[in-house]
């Protein structure tokens, strides 16, 4: 079995290319997914079947991040004892479920119905966790130093970590902004809780990934300049 070891610190031009390309590809995949779900193509119709489509969206989001990790991930897996590995898995699962509970509570505090629609609220919390915490789990596994760099200290390394940092913030911002169209009196079917917030979350995530690829490029160029002089 395997466990993560050290993170790769030096960033060369080739990996940069991969990182940026990977980000852009996953962004476009997610955007396509959002488009599909909004228009009810392929029977993923977020307006008629919100719960099922949220599940589908969530799975795809996980798969996309999984692929991203598989191709450009920086963790080197090592052989490890089975018991420790199971412990790590449990840890990650615990963190994920705590984050779902946390987001569920926050959604209720922000005004989501308390008793009714709890399935919808739960699914919203799941998708928000999928775009914020799940990428951290996938890319960083149990490297909690890196977790803290990304979430608390706001000083991630350039590359995957900065992507995680930026998309973490933009996903939450997207979910927050997604609540804005709800009070409008247009009486559209998509104004129902939690559709706008789910879409907001995913769009925020995509925007975050895009920004992070631009950010990575600019940072890389700056560093190279310093190295040359």
């Amino acid at each position: 079995m395997a466990a993560p070891m050290s993170t790769e610190k030096s960033l060369n031009k080739k990996t940069l290319k991969y990182v940026v390309l990977g980000h852009l590809l996953s962004t476009s995949a997610l955007l396509a997914l959002v488009y599909v779900s909004l228009n009810g193509i392929l029977e993923i119709d977020i307006i008629s079947y919100p719960l099922n489509s949220i599940k589908v969206l969530m799975t795809f989001c996980l798969i996309i991040h999984g692929c991203l990790h598989f191709f450009i991930g920086s963790i080197k897996w090592q052989k490890q004892r089975l018991g420790l590995w199971i412990k790590d898995v449990l840890k990650c699962f615990l963190i994920f479920s705590i984050s779902v509970m946390f987001f569920h509570c926050v959604a209720i505090l922000f005004g989501a119905p308390f008793a009714q629609k709890s399935a919808e609220t739960f699914h919203f919390a799941m998708i928000l966790s999928t775009t914020t915490v799940a990428p951290l789990i996938i890319h960083l596994w149990t490297d909690f130093d890196a977790w803290f760099r990304v979430i608390i200290f706001q000083s991630p390394d350039i590359g995957i970590e900065s992507m995680l940092n930026i998309s973490f913030i933009t996903s939450i911002l997207g979910a927050w902004l997604g609540a804005l169209p709800v009070p409008l009196d247009w009486d559209r079917p998509w104004q129902v809780w939690p559709i706008t917030c789910v879409i907001g979350t995913l769009l925020g995530h995509c925007v975050g990934m895009m920004i992070s690829s631009i950010y990575t490029c600019t940072q890389f160029n700056k560093r190279n300049k310093y190295k040359l002089t």
Binding site: G111, P183, L184, D185
Partner: peptide, 15 residues
């Protein structure tokens, strides 16, 4: 509609 639902704005912002 934001005038009619002004309370939502305030609740949201305070939270």
């Amino acid at each position: 509609s934001f005038v009619e639902e002004e309370h939502q704005t305030w609740y949201f912002l305070c939270m």
